[in-house]
Amino acid sequence: MSSLRPVTIRIRTLAQELWLPVALVTAWWFASKDSTSVYFPPLSRIMESFRDLWLFERVGSDVVPTLQTVFLGLGLSVLIGVAVGTVLAFWPPVHRAVEPMLQFGWSIPKLAILPAIMAIFGIGSETRLVFVVLGTVWPILLSTVEGFRSLDAVVVETARSYRVRTVDRFFRIYLPGASPAIIAGIRTSLEIALALTVVSEMVASSSGVGFFVLQSQQSFAIPDMWAGALLLGIIGYALNLGFRLIEHRVLRWHTGRIAAVSGGEHS
């Protein structure tokens, strides 16, 4: 019995998480079954479109460009955000000088700068990339600064007292110490990245899932539009899940330590 228990618990947890979504989809399926509304086609119609479009007819032409923009944009943001954030964290006078601008950059509604970027870069992949980077770099940059500045004083002192070399000090002590904050920033940016990619595809692209959704709406291919939206939801969910898996891996020490400390039985 005891060997079966973990599996039983797993199945139970899964059941607890899944019953509501399953119920809702079922309800949608039957409620929309005989729908004649142009805007709310039967779910079966949407699923048909979904199968025709995304398994795997338009994966190469639309899904790949979308993911490309997301990953490339986020990747550049991580590089720029961490690099600039590091410089600012270790150079307080500059940080004090640019801090208001950083907050301003973070606060600008991202869409407000899209026309400007389009004017400069035209309608193409550069525009989408620049837009995504400009929208996602801030959380990473700010959390990097925060991560370095809130490094444990005892940790810093230990590194100092053992005369750890600068390179080791940065890559083995400071960067891992700041990593929980940096990764939290990247998680925020990931969510923004997909949203901005879709928007940029709607106005400045001739491919991508965002472009496809808007195109379908404009050509009254409503089931296709819904199928595209559904796909974006699935992509967003999958990206989030993937990121959490990586995060769990990278920050295993962090969660483990918190669990150990709050367990409180160590003496």
Partner: peptide, 29 residues
């Protein structure tokens, strides 16, 4: 030629490193 041991072991040991990596840290140079 000096080493320091602090009271706050839970913070002076680096939680992202194994015990071996922690002990190795000052030896790297």
């Amino acid at each position: 030629p000096m080493a320091v041991v602090l009271q706050d072991y839970s913070r002076s040991l680096l939680p992202w490193m194994t015990v071996r990596a922690n002990v190795l840290l000052p030896l790297r140079r």
